[in-house]
Amino acid sequence: MKRLLPRLLLGLPAVALLTLFFVLPYVEMVAMSFRAPAFGQPFGSGHTLMHYGRALGDPLYTGALVRSLLTGALITALCLLVSFPLALHLSRLQGRWHVVFYACIVSPLLIGVLVRNFGWMVLVAVDGPFNRWAMAAGLIERPVRVLFTQGIVVMALVHVFTPFMVLPIATALRNVRPELREASASLGAGAFETFRRVTLPLSFPGVQAGVTLVFVLSVAAYVTPALLGGQGIAYMPAVVVRELIGSFAWPFGAALAVIMAASTLAVVTVFTLATHRLAERTRA
């Protein structure tokens, strides 16, 4: 193929962009975490391991980390719960209706996280529609303050990440050939049994992709807790950002970011290893 080389050169600008402004920054982040601290400027000269010692020795930071990981796991689980029925619904639709519901699930992806969080602020405000409806229905006597609680943060993040979970699961479900369900029925399995023994396991490649993505993104989510969580609850991303732009302590902030990334990766790795057998059996 003599025309192949020019074609490959076409990829060069993009590769250069991502190497320079994506790969190197991550390298820089790790390098920064070993730099010495300094007063009056972001970092000093020389190298040290002290930031890691400080971060891992202080319950303030380890607490935030654990809270972030646990909340991430909770958000992922809730996302899965919400997304599976949607994906199932989507994968069974055809034609016009498919497009309509697909749009319902995809369009939130095109709306900024901030705007979607703001939508929740409007809905759950003390004089907002949820409180008024609940009072009108007699469920509560006086307005409930939901804003700046952990509950609303989790709910808003589930809302933000649901499309990331639905799309891979729906794709996996679409790859489950309808004859498999028919075969299962002809062998005597009812609808629930078929779901449990055939549809559910075969959706696993999508579940695995969705769970991994949502967990990674939710542990590192910054905006939503900052906007809806108020000052009360410290999650790791907020702690990192405070160190970086509040205290101007870049090396320490970098160390916290690296710790957060590494522990997220560790959880993902454990999940991948634990589900290795199922993944191996169900890969397309």
Binding site: F21, V240, M260
Partner: peptide, 11 residues
């Protein structure tokens, strides 16, 4: 995560 990329780019 956008946050990690942002931190790397900041440095």
């Amino acid at each position: 995560p956008e946050l990690l990329t942002a931190i790397g780019l900041l440095f």
